[in-house]
């Protein structure tokens, strides 16, 4: 947490707004429903969304470079399906996990390669990846497969008791460790800083001698890895594989990033942000569940609306920056004189 030294006010605005929203939502929930304000309800946010925290954090890296990864949800579904079917055949749980991670890494690396090597739009490649992931999952099976493997069920049901009576699952530990690792990578490694540089200005990054190609490929590979890890954690959570799992979750991940202050135009954002974003959407879900009469579809609609609000907020900030940064605009104009006809 020490890594998060306050640097930019316009950056902090979003993440502060997110924290405020978090408190407000939680406060509103606690006021309206008895039993909402309990340790376990709060911890359940982590338990229920551990996979999403991991996936959104991976997505954050991609968005910071100025790209996007739409394939995450289908990769999670694919991994759930791959693990479930491999486990059904009696394969060792840890081998399955390794295979899952490898699948995710290969998937992401392939996408990154296509994007970098052929200068394709990230979204068209990952959109195809989204269909590819679901397609492979469908091929493995259209029915849900229940995971009965002992290791998986054990991990799934293992409760880590905390002081104060609450408990968390192993998945939560994995997710939190992952977030800490991501923050460290983002702040203290050459790769992490290259990701930010790339999002700031691709041209400058090239001219400053950064390897833009490798960073691009690495960042999509990382996202693929995160989706796979998220897939494993999700399989712990659901104990089933289904090709239809998590339809539309890519928006939840993007929403978590946007709400968590990752600028969609790239270059800005704290890697702890997506976790706050996930908590926000998690609370909304919890409130709707506590409310009882509203259909679960309201969750999607409210999250969509929230996503829209934060996008508009980002837009405002970017516009203000552009207005304030006239000086840089002029240099850019001078720069254009360089272009030869």
């Amino acid at each position: 947490m020490k890594a998060l030294r306050i640097r930019v006010s316009s950056n902090n605005i979003i993440i502060l707004a997110t924290l405020l929203l978090l408190v407000l939502l939680y406060g509103a929930g606690s006021m309206m429903y008895t039993g909402f304000f309990s340790m376990q309800v709060f911890l359940n946010l982590f338990i229920d969304n551990a996979y999403l925290i991991i996936v959104a954090t991976g997505m954050a890296f991609v968005i910071i470079t100025g790209g996007i990864d739409l394939s995450v949800a289908s990769v999670v579904a694919l991994i759930s399906m791959v693990s479930a079917s491999l486990l059904e055949q009696g394969m060792n749980a840890y081998v399955v996990m390794s295979i899952s991670l490898l699948v995710g890494i290969a998937f992401g690396a392939g996408q990154g390669y296509l994007i970098h090597r052929f200068q394709l739009h990230p979204w068209i490649v990952t959109l195809a990846g989204m269909f590819l992931g679901r397609g492979i999952a469908y091929l493995i099976g259209t029915e849900s497969i229940v995971v009965k493997n002992e290791t998986y069920t054990k991990i799934s049901s293992y409760k880590i008791n905390l002081f104060g009576g609450g408990f968390i699952s192993i998945s939560v530990v994995i997710a939190l460790l992952f977030v800490i690792l991501a923050i460290l990578v983002g702040r203290y490694t050459g790769f992490g800083r290259a990701v930010y540089a790339l999002g700031g200005s691709e041209r400058s990054s090239v001219l400053m001698g950064l390897s833009v190609g490798n960073t691009t490929i690495a960042v999509y590979t990382l996202s693929g890895f995160c989706s796979a890890l998220g897939g494993i954690v999700f399989t712990f959570y659901m104990l089933s594989g289904n090709s239809l799992h998590l339809m539309g979750m890519e928006m939840d991940a993007i929403a978590a990033c946007v709400i968590g202050g990752i600028l969609l135009t790239g270059g800005f954002g704290y890697l702890i942000g997506p976790m706050f974003g996930v908590l926000c959407t998690g609370i909304i879900q919890t409130i709707i569940i506590f409310q009882g009469t509203l259909s679960s579809w309201w969750t999607k609609i409210v999250i969509g609306f929230l996503l829209f609000l934060f996008m508009a907020l980002q837009r405002l900030i970017v516009m203000r920056k552009e207005k304030g940064g006239n000086a840089t605009q002029i240099t850019r104009k001078i720069a254009k004189n360089n272009v030869k006809m």
Binding site: R193, S201, S204, M208, L210, T331, I334, N338
Partner: peptide, 26 residues
């Protein structure tokens, strides 16, 4: 034109790609 990354700190812009390390970390 200024070919630096406006979103990074001044120090980082000077040292990006060749940051001093301690135990492998920047």
């Amino acid at each position: 034109e200024v070919n630096l990354c406006p979103n990074l700190s001044v120090a980082e812009n000077i040292f990006i790609g060749r940051q001093p390390r301690k135990w492998g970390m920047i």
